[in-house]
Protein backbone atom coordinates (compact mmCIF):
# COMPACT_ATOMS: atom_id res chain seq x y z
CA UNK A 1 0.00 0.00 0.00
CA UNK A 2 1.12 3.56 0.53
CA UNK A 3 4.45 4.51 1.97
CA UNK A 4 2.84 6.11 5.00
CA UNK A 5 1.05 2.89 5.79
CA UNK A 6 4.29 0.92 5.60
CA UNK A 7 6.05 3.38 7.90
CA UNK A 8 3.26 3.07 10.46
CA UNK A 9 3.46 -0.71 10.43
CA UNK A 10 7.23 -0.72 10.88
CA UNK A 11 6.92 1.91 13.60
CA UNK A 12 4.35 -0.25 15.35
CA UNK A 13 6.66 -3.25 15.38
CA UNK A 14 9.68 -1.22 16.46
CA UNK A 15 7.89 0.39 19.41
CA UNK A 16 6.18 -2.84 20.45
CA UNK A 17 9.40 -4.85 20.41
CA UNK A 18 11.44 -2.07 22.05
CA UNK A 19 8.90 -2.02 24.86
CA UNK A 20 8.69 -5.73 25.56
CA UNK A 21 12.33 -6.66 24.94
CA UNK A 22 14.21 -3.70 26.34
CA UNK A 23 12.16 -1.19 28.29
CA UNK A 24 10.15 -3.81 30.16
CA UNK A 25 13.36 -4.79 31.94
CA UNK A 26 14.34 -1.20 32.59
CA UNK A 27 12.84 -0.09 35.90
CA UNK A 28 14.69 2.59 37.87
CA UNK A 29 14.62 2.39 41.68
CA UNK A 30 11.43 0.26 41.47
CA UNK A 31 9.47 3.47 40.80
CA UNK A 32 10.24 4.69 37.32
CA UNK A 33 8.92 2.65 34.43
CA UNK A 34 9.59 3.53 30.83
CA UNK A 35 6.52 2.91 28.68
CA UNK A 36 8.00 4.09 25.42
CA UNK A 37 5.20 2.63 23.26
CA UNK A 38 3.00 5.66 24.06
CA UNK A 39 5.25 7.58 21.68
CA UNK A 40 3.93 5.55 18.76
CA UNK A 41 0.44 6.98 19.16
CA UNK A 42 1.79 10.47 19.90
CA UNK A 43 4.00 10.58 16.81
CA UNK A 44 1.58 9.33 14.14
CA UNK A 45 0.97 11.96 11.40
CA UNK A 46 -1.20 15.00 12.25
CA UNK A 47 -4.08 14.08 10.00
CA UNK A 48 -4.54 10.53 11.35
CA UNK A 49 -8.17 10.39 12.50
CA UNK A 50 -9.22 9.37 16.01
CA UNK A 51 -10.74 6.09 14.85
CA UNK A 52 -7.47 4.84 13.37
CA UNK A 53 -5.56 6.13 16.39
CA UNK A 54 -7.82 4.33 18.82
CA UNK A 55 -7.79 1.04 16.97
CA UNK A 56 -3.99 1.12 16.61
CA UNK A 57 -3.75 2.08 20.28
CA UNK A 58 -6.01 -0.78 21.25
CA UNK A 59 -3.98 -3.35 19.32
CA UNK A 60 -0.63 -2.02 20.54
CA UNK A 61 -1.94 -1.88 24.11
CA UNK A 62 -3.14 -5.47 23.92
CA UNK A 63 0.20 -6.59 22.55
CA UNK A 64 2.03 -4.96 25.45
CA UNK A 65 -0.55 -6.36 27.90
CA UNK A 66 0.22 -9.83 26.69
CA UNK A 67 3.82 -9.43 27.87
CA UNK A 68 2.88 -7.73 31.11
CA UNK A 69 0.20 -10.35 31.94
CA UNK A 70 -2.17 -7.46 32.56
CA UNK A 71 -4.83 -8.00 29.92
CA UNK A 72 -6.69 -4.77 29.13
CA UNK A 73 -4.86 -2.32 31.37
CA UNK A 74 -2.31 -0.98 28.89
CA UNK A 75 -4.90 -1.14 26.11
CA UNK A 76 -7.36 0.92 28.12
CA UNK A 77 -4.88 3.66 28.96
CA UNK A 78 -3.52 3.83 25.43
CA UNK A 79 -7.00 4.06 23.89
CA UNK A 80 -7.65 7.00 26.21
CA UNK A 81 -4.49 8.73 24.98
CA UNK A 82 -5.39 7.97 21.36
CA UNK A 83 -8.87 9.43 21.85
CA UNK A 84 -7.66 12.65 23.40
CA UNK A 85 -4.58 13.16 21.23
CA UNK A 86 -6.22 15.07 18.39
CA UNK A 87 -8.24 17.27 20.76
CA UNK A 88 -5.05 18.12 22.61
CA UNK A 89 -3.27 18.89 19.33
CA UNK A 90 -6.14 21.28 18.58
CA UNK A 91 -5.88 23.00 21.94
CA UNK A 92 -2.16 23.64 21.73
CA UNK A 93 -2.03 24.74 18.07
CA UNK A 94 0.84 27.22 17.81
CA UNK A 95 0.31 30.66 16.26
CA UNK A 96 0.02 30.26 12.51
CA UNK A 97 -1.10 26.63 12.77
CA UNK A 98 0.78 23.45 11.96
CA UNK A 99 2.72 22.88 8.78
CA UNK A 100 0.75 20.61 6.50
CA UNK A 101 1.73 16.97 6.14
CA UNK A 102 4.09 16.87 9.11
CA UNK A 103 4.06 14.61 12.12
CA UNK A 104 3.82 16.19 15.59
CA UNK A 105 7.53 15.82 16.21
CA UNK A 106 10.12 17.78 18.10
CA UNK A 107 11.96 18.63 14.88
CA UNK A 108 8.83 20.17 13.33
CA UNK A 109 7.55 22.20 16.29
CA UNK A 110 10.40 22.79 18.71
CA UNK A 111 11.23 21.47 22.17
CA UNK A 112 8.87 23.67 24.18
CA UNK A 113 5.84 22.78 22.13
CA UNK A 114 6.80 19.12 22.14
CA UNK A 115 7.04 19.03 25.93
CA UNK A 116 3.65 20.68 26.30
CA UNK A 117 2.28 18.11 23.88
CA UNK A 118 3.92 14.99 25.35
CA UNK A 119 4.08 15.34 29.12
CA UNK A 120 0.35 15.80 29.91
CA UNK A 121 -0.66 12.87 27.68
CA UNK A 122 2.04 10.63 29.12
CA UNK A 123 0.99 11.69 32.61
CA UNK A 124 -2.64 10.85 31.84
CA UNK A 125 -1.65 7.47 30.42
CA UNK A 126 0.44 6.58 33.46
CA UNK A 127 -2.24 7.78 35.88
CA UNK A 128 -4.87 5.50 34.38
CA UNK A 129 -2.39 2.64 34.05
CA UNK A 130 -1.02 2.62 37.59
CA UNK A 131 -4.29 3.26 39.37
CA UNK A 132 -6.00 0.50 37.41
CA UNK A 133 -3.14 -1.85 38.20
CA UNK A 134 -3.22 -0.97 41.90
CA UNK A 135 -6.94 -1.74 41.81
CA UNK A 136 -8.02 1.50 43.50
CA UNK A 137 -6.65 4.27 45.66
CA UNK A 138 -5.43 2.14 48.55
CA UNK A 139 -1.77 2.98 47.93
CA UNK A 140 -2.46 6.53 46.82
CA UNK A 141 0.86 8.29 47.52
CA UNK A 142 2.98 5.34 46.53
CA UNK A 143 1.10 5.15 43.23
CA UNK A 144 1.38 8.91 42.70
CA UNK A 145 5.13 8.66 43.23
CA UNK A 146 5.30 5.86 40.66
CA UNK A 147 3.26 7.95 38.19
CA UNK A 148 5.47 11.01 38.63
CA UNK A 149 8.75 9.10 38.33
CA UNK A 150 7.51 7.15 35.31
CA UNK A 151 6.17 10.26 33.58
CA UNK A 152 9.60 11.87 33.88
CA UNK A 153 11.32 8.70 32.67
CA UNK A 154 9.01 8.03 29.73
CA UNK A 155 8.81 11.66 28.56
CA UNK A 156 12.56 12.06 28.94
CA UNK A 157 13.16 8.94 26.89
CA UNK A 158 10.72 10.06 24.17
CA UNK A 159 12.49 13.42 23.92
CA UNK A 160 15.94 11.81 23.80
CA UNK A 161 14.75 9.46 21.04
CA UNK A 162 13.38 12.50 19.17
CA UNK A 163 16.82 14.08 19.18
CA UNK A 164 18.41 10.82 18.05
CA UNK A 165 15.90 10.26 15.24
CA UNK A 166 15.40 13.92 14.34
CA UNK A 167 19.04 14.42 13.38
CA UNK A 168 18.88 12.08 10.43
CA UNK A 169 15.57 13.40 9.13
CA UNK A 170 16.57 17.04 8.82
Amino acid sequence: MTRGFLTSVIGFLVYALLQVMLFQELVLFRYAFCLIYVAYILLLPMETNSLTLMILGFILGLFVDMFYNSLGIHASSLVMVAYLRNYWLGVITPQGGYDAGLAPTLAANGLQWFMVYTIPLVFLHHTILFFTEAGGFGLFWFTVLKIMASTVFTSGMIIVLQYLAGGSRR
Binding site: S76, Y83, T132
Partner: peptide, 21 residues
Amino acid sequence: YRAFFTFLILQLLCVWMIVQN
Protein backbone atom coordinates in the same frame (compact mmCIF):
# COMPACT_ATOMS: atom_id res chain seq x y z
CA TYR B 1 -20.01 11.02 17.29
CA ARG B 2 -18.43 7.87 15.90
CA ALA B 3 -15.09 8.61 17.54
CA PHE B 4 -16.69 8.86 20.94
CA PHE B 5 -18.71 5.69 20.48
CA THR B 6 -15.68 3.74 19.28
CA PHE B 7 -13.85 5.05 22.31
CA LEU B 8 -16.66 3.88 24.56
CA ILE B 9 -16.81 0.44 22.98
CA LEU B 10 -13.05 -0.08 23.16
CA GLN B 11 -12.96 1.04 26.79
CA LEU B 12 -15.81 -1.29 27.72
CA LEU B 13 -13.95 -4.11 26.00
CA CYS B 14 -10.83 -3.27 28.02
CA VAL B 15 -12.76 -3.16 31.29
CA TRP B 16 -14.34 -6.49 30.50
CA MET B 17 -10.90 -7.99 29.82
CA ILE B 18 -9.44 -6.54 33.01
CA VAL B 19 -12.24 -8.07 35.04
CA GLN B 20 -11.90 -11.40 33.24
CA ASN B 21 -8.18 -11.46 33.80
